[in-house]
Design a protein around this nucleic acid. Structure first.
Length: 889
RNA sequence: GGGCGCUUAGCUCAGCGGUAGAGCGCCUCGUUUACACCGAGGAUGCCGGGGGUUCGAAUCCCUCAGCGCCCA
């Protein structure tokens, strides 16, 4: 017997353990050797991470698809794992070392430090994968991969070597985004703009031979490395100065005034200082004018005079100062020497490292670059030709915009944790890229001393290989053969560039095909006010806490139901309460069936179900199954959830169970047996239907009610929809009965509504209702109608209409004898309102039919519908007027 | 500044050419063979403003306004 109260926490964890232990989530289930594959690779979460609500959404959607396809009989693989998150992980371990007063990274040395990182990973790297289990994610755990695994590392080396061989990876000296905290290059995507309230300093630069030019800058300290002043070629104010030189304050260096369209005459003074080594735009200007590009900051963001030379005592005193301290001193010095003209408050966007949180420095260094523009060609074409589709399609624009303007991808990082670049240098600087040191030595020749590049690759380099490296590439493994290319990638739109673009570039390059055929983009999960969740705002919702409070199924269902394609989700706890109530409803419905001796019947045959109610629920069930499948296949997770909800609660609980009660409580007839048979089938189908989104409660009920064991549901066959399914959705007049019951209930309300004293007396009472042909029309549903509408049915309309509640239904008048006085005023008011509405509708329908253009141009079926509408409205209007008349109104 | 979206019932959102839908909330009523995390009934919409296309527009086009996101 089911417990009276539904408590998800009492069975969720145990169920998951059984599922996992049984291996039912794994690909290659028995008998599916020849089945179609269905494959999703998880976008590998950061190994240092923990599950946030965005992961919960992302993985719920994947799980819905995966569980659905598994039930459809596909050989389904959901590949799990994590990425090694170079900077984040190194940061975590370094912080841990510092907190426990252990020697730092540099003191430990690379080898020992890496040993510590692996130790950390072994101990703490499983947080997020444990949490995925709590969510119910049905991934193939035995195949779990990590981007630093041996096989995946081998793939990384292989790709690097191949790219190098093909000239698609090269070393270059360019400006990179430099993170002074981590002292490494980071990618554009790891940089976020933050609005900063700063100043615009106007500085006077004396012109050689007399005069001056005032430049405006947000970064005065970089003037130490200025190599020019630029003015707009058409700016008449400065035309005479172009070609002359200025003498830089502080360093005393002589630099040219150049004409360059980069300078905006409208901004500041119209003259800008050019510091090629410290600004991306200036770097371009420098290149156009063949300027030098000395740096004035070192890797830690401290002033260095190494490239600009020593000079005055003041200049020399800056050596080694932090960049912000140097700015203060330089501004003070400029002020003291009256070189500072003006300081304006100025709010501007400053790039910050997303991990370190400090302003990044553009820094001129030699790094390894991937020729992304070339690699992007095939992915672009794949999307253009529809080989890869975005859902929703709109996001293809975002993809194109980025891919068509893609910059060289800097892949080297000055870190220790990651895939060390397979490049070795000879003493003369010659580079040998090879799969191993031995291979490099072979290339270099015996006896040449080789040093390996100390840098590692960007984490995204290995993540980009994830869809095939996890399946064994570069080996042509059976798994790769079967499951690659994968079917779907699911990700948030904020991460299109990280995942989608890079996986597609590498997939096309390495395997010749796109790594997936559909990209499902979902929105961000925000708080109920639509604000982004953040720790600082304190509005973060922890999915684990939500699961504890509402159950994993309710959390999953909520996310699924709210997942309109590509739209952000405003998540309120209230929604989860609502869907927890849904889970409770299912539980109670199951209990009701159990209490009525309705049990799974493997021998049950749908052909035997001839009773109208049985036929009716079977047909509704079939329609719900078809619609759920179509929604999931169309990636309409919201439609899937709301359709299943409406069917389960509205159709099955509110109508089927209620209509079945008279039969169930009566004699053990053949009809009762049929209704019970249909009921057990419908409930079993509901459990299957909801299993992709609510795996726990469905499995628990599946087992407790005796449909099978909870593990079995995972691979149970998705319900079949027989061909006769939608033939007759009004089997035996059930739909008529429902409409009739609804009208009686509404009529009661109208005729009792405004008179509380009487209302109470007869709202609760069973009243006689009669009308022409009623008993014949009600047929086998008479008992149910009587029960649900609280009436006793009679066949002919008799009695004094003025003393009865009157109901117009389907072109006939029905009288409900009332034991107490009816609310004449209230009913008249309601009728007048009905009549008004009917008159309005009729008038507009008639107007349309009177329009010659409409009659000649509208589709025939629309025209016919209008005629029928006119007829029905006219008929109903006439009858409602009669009702009002008899009421004396 | 450039690009993309959004604006539909009090709230959150579906619908995207044939007379407006859901969930939640609200109001009234209700201990009936599961369920008060429930049941029954009800109210509520110039579908952001304006213009156009069409026999017909929430739905297509233009425009304005407000909001949001991305890129510079």
């Amino acid at each position: 017997m089911l417990d009276k109260t539904f408590d998800p926490t009492s069975f969720e964890t145990a169920l998951y353990e059984r599922w996992e232990a049984s291996g039912c989530f794994n690909a290659g289930q028995p008998g599916r050797e020849k089945a179609d594959p269905f494959t999703i690779v998880i976008p590998p979460p950061n190994v240092t991470g923990s599950l946030h609500i965005g992961h919960a959404l992302n993985n719920t959607l994947q799980d819905v698809m995966v569980r659905y396809h598994r039930m459809k009989g596909d050989d389904t693989l959901w590949m799990p794992g994590t990425d090694h998150a170079g900077i984040a992980t190194q940061m975590v371990v370094e912080r841990q070392l510092a907190q426990t007063q252990q020697p730092g990274r540099r003191e430990l040395g690379r080898e020992e430090f890496l040993r510590r990182v692996w130790a950390w990973k072994a101990e703490s790297g499983g947080t997020i994968t444990r949490q995925l289990r709590r969510l119910g994610a049905s991934v193939d755990w035995p195949r779990e991969r990590f981007t630093m695994d041996e096989g995946l590392s081998k793939a990384v080396i292989e790709v690097f070597v191949r790219l190098h061989r093909d000239g698609l990876i090269y070393r270059d000296t360019r400006l990179v985004n430099w993170d002074p905290v981590f002292q490494t290059a980071i990618s554009d995507l790891e940089v976020e703009s933050r609005e900063v309230k700063g100043s615009l300093w106007h500085i006077r630069y004396p012109v050689e031979g007399g005069g001056e030019i005032v430049v405006a800058t947000t970064r005065p300290e970089t003037m130490l490395a200025d190599t020019a002043v630029a003015v707009h070629p058409e700016d008449e104010r400065y035309a005479a100065l172009v070609g002359k030189h200025v003498i830089l304050p502080i360093t005393g260096r002589r630099i040219p005034i150049v004409a360059d369209a980069y300078s905006d005459p409208e901004k500041g003074t119209g003259a800008v200082k050019i510091t090629p080594a410290h600004d991306f735009n200036d770097f371009e200007v420098g290149r156009r004018h063949s300027l030098g590009s000395p740096s004035m900051l070192d890797a830690e963001g401290r002033v260095t005079l190494a490239e600009i030379g020593r000079g005055s005592d003041f200049l020399n005193s800056l050596d080694g100062l932090d960049r912000f301290e140097a700015r203060k001193r330089i501004v003070a010095e400029l002020e003291a020497t009256e070189a500072l003209v003006l300081v304006e408050p100025h709010t501007h966007q400053v790039p910050h490292g997303d991990r370190s949180g400090v302003p990044i420095e553009p820094r001129l260094t030699m790094q390894w670059y991937v020729d992304a523009a070339t690699l992007a060609q095939k992915p672009i074409e794949a999307v253009e030709t529809g080989r890869v589709k975005f859902e929703p399609k709109l996001f293809e624009n975002t993809f194109f915009a980025w891919m068509r303007d893609i910059q060289p991808w800097c892949v080297s990082r000055q870190l220790w944790w990651g895939h060390q670049i397979p490049a070795w240098y000879a003493p003369d600087g010659q580079v040998f890229v090879a799969r191993s040191e031995a291979e490099a030595q072979e290339l270099a020749g015996a006896g040449v001393a080789l040093t390996r590049d100390p840098d590692v690759l960007d984490t995204w380099f290995s993540s980009a290989l994830w869809p095939f490296s996890t399946l064994g590439w570069p080996e042509q493994t059976p798994a790769l053969d079967k499951h690659y290319p994968t079917n779907v990638l699911v990700t948030g739109f904020d991460i299109i560039f990280f995942w989608v673009a890079r996986m597609m570039m590498m997939g096309e390059y390495c395997t010749g095909v796109a790594p997936f055929s559909t990209v499902v983009i979902h929105g961000l999960v925000r708080d109920e006010k639509g604000q982004k969740m953040s720790k600082s705002k304190g509005n973060v919702m922890d999915p684990l806490e939500l699961i504890d409070a509402y159950g994993a199924d309710a959390v999953r269902f909520t996310l699924c139901a709210l997942a309109s394609p590509g739209r952000d989700i405003k998540l309120a706890k209230q929604r989860m309460e609502g869907y927890r109530a849904f889970a409770t409803k299912i539980w109670n419905a199951a209990r009701f069936l159990e209490m009525n001796g309705i049990a799974p019947d493997p021998a049950w045959k749908r052909e035997d179900a001839t009773a109208p109610l049985a036929r009716w629920i079977l047909e509704k069930t079939d329609a719900a199954v078809a619609s759920a499948a179509a929604s999931i296949e169309a990636f309409r997770f919201d439609d899937y959830a709301s359709g299943a909800y409406a069917f389960t609660w509205g159709t099955f609980c509110d109508w089927f169970i209620e209509l079945a009660k008279p039969t169930l409580s009566g004699e053990a007839t053949d009809e009762q047996a049929q209704v019970k048979g249909a009921a057990q089938y419908a409930l079993g189908t509901i459990l299957k239907l909801l299993h992709p989104v609510m795996p726990y409660i469905t499995a628990e009920l599946w087992e407790k009610l005796g449909y099978g064991d909870a593990v079995g549901l995972v691979t149970a066959e998705w319900p079949a929809v027989p061909a006769f399914a939608t033939e007759d959705l009004n089997a035996g007049g059930i739909d008529w009965a429902i409409g009739f019951i609804e009208d009686i209930r509404a009529t009661r309300g109208e005729f009792a509504r405004l008179d509380p004293a009487n209302a109470k007396a007869w709202l609760g009472a069973t009243l006689p209702i009669s009308g022409p042909g009623l008993l014949a029309q009600a047929g086998g549903n008479a008992g149910a109608i009587a029960r649900l509408a609280k009436v006793t049915l009679g066949d002919a309309a008799t009695g004094d209409a003025a003393q009865c509640a009157q109901m117009v239904h389907g072109g006939a008048l029905y009288l409900i004898s009332v034991g107490a006085p009816i609310d004449v005023a209230g009913a008249s008011k309601a009728k007048r309102k009905d009549i008004e509405k009917l008159e309005k509708d009729l008038a507009s329908t008639e107007a349309r039919l009177a329009n010659a253009d409409f009659v000649t141009r509208a589709k025939p079926e629309v025209l016919e519908e209008m005629h029928e509408r006119k007829r029905a409205l006219g008929e109903k209007l006439g009858m409602e007027k009669g009702v009002l008349e008899r009421l004396g109104g």
